Amino acid sequence: MARTITEIQNSILEEKEKHEALKVLNSNSKASIWRLFTYVVAYVIFNLELLFDAHTEEINTTIAEQKKGSLKWYRNKALAFQYGFDLLPDLEDFNNENYTEEEIENSKIIKYSAVTEATTQSRLIIKIATETGDKLTPINEAELEAFTYYLEEIKYAGVAVTIVNYLPDLLKLGIKIKRDPLVLDANGNAIAPVNGIIKPIEKTITNYLKALPFNGELVVSKLTDQLKITTGVLDVKITQAESAWLDATSGVYENFKPIDMSVIPESGYFTTEDTEGKNLITITYVV
């Protein structure tokens, strides 16, 4: 781990004191030429150590992700899936010969994946999603058939796999905002929009959900913290936080259930619109 510039400079000064010929360099002024030289050298060493740290982290990450059979390996293999492409004989890689870079990239339809181990039985849960416009969506039936076959070809013998390719979990929120009437009107609109943001509360919620990693944990208190620092907000209270997920057997969403403190979406991601496109977020503004 990289030392601080001060730590490095102090080690240089300590080494200097060991050499009799350098004892004449005894000024205590930080602006003295010799002290400035030690600072410059310390700064260079500091940046070199940062590079060493970054290199070590990169190597460790590469090793972890290439370890065959690990959760990260399965995740990377899911993201590497190419729809419509054959696997090379006796290999886990696709045959990309005679295809352009654009065609290869377009065939990688799975944009998001997370792999976990089931807690109640010995199997892997592989959650996946693609992108349709600016929204996360499941892949279609034909694509799922090909992806399932692909996993059967590359997975390790004896490993049971469950693919989660669901519509997003529904997220219902009730929020009470104490607004600054100098900044927000009664409908939560910015009186003087900053950067063109007319509804800052809605923008904060959208940004928080977008920042969640795929299969990331939604923490109610963290969302509250983000709302509190939104322009025009004096205080905030989340009065309702519920989620519902798709029942894989019936294909119907289950009833909404309260979110105590946090929740990880069953599908890997959330939507704040119901199946009819109705907004599931209710915001009440008070002064």
Rank of each mutant, 00 (worst) to 15 (best):
V236P: 01
N255Y: 11
A146Q: 13
I201D: 01
S221F: 13
I191S: 08
A157T: 15
N207P: 00
Q240L: 14
T249C: 00
D235H: 02
N195Y: 10
T120A: 13
L223N: 10
Y253D: 10
V233N: 05
K127F: 03
P181N: 14
V219D: 04
T230Q: 13
K222P: 02
T206D: 12
A146S: 09
S221R: 15
K155D: 05
T239I: 12
L173E: 01
L218N: 09
V220K: 15
L167N: 11
I154D: 11
I163A: 06
L227N: 04
K176S: 15
N140M: 03
N140S: 00
G158S: 03
G158F: 09
I238H: 11
S122E: 14
I229R: 13
N189H: 06
Q240V: 12
Q226W: 14
T130R: 08
N189E: 14
N140C: 02
T239E: 11
D235E: 11
T204N: 07
I201C: 02
D185F: 08
E242L: 00
A190N: 10
W245F: 09
N207F: 13
P213S: 13
K222C: 05
E254K: 12
N255S: 12
V159N: 01
P193R: 10
E131I: 15
I177N: 07
T137I: 07
P200Y: 07
A248K: 12
D235T: 12
D185I: 08
P193L: 01
K172E: 12
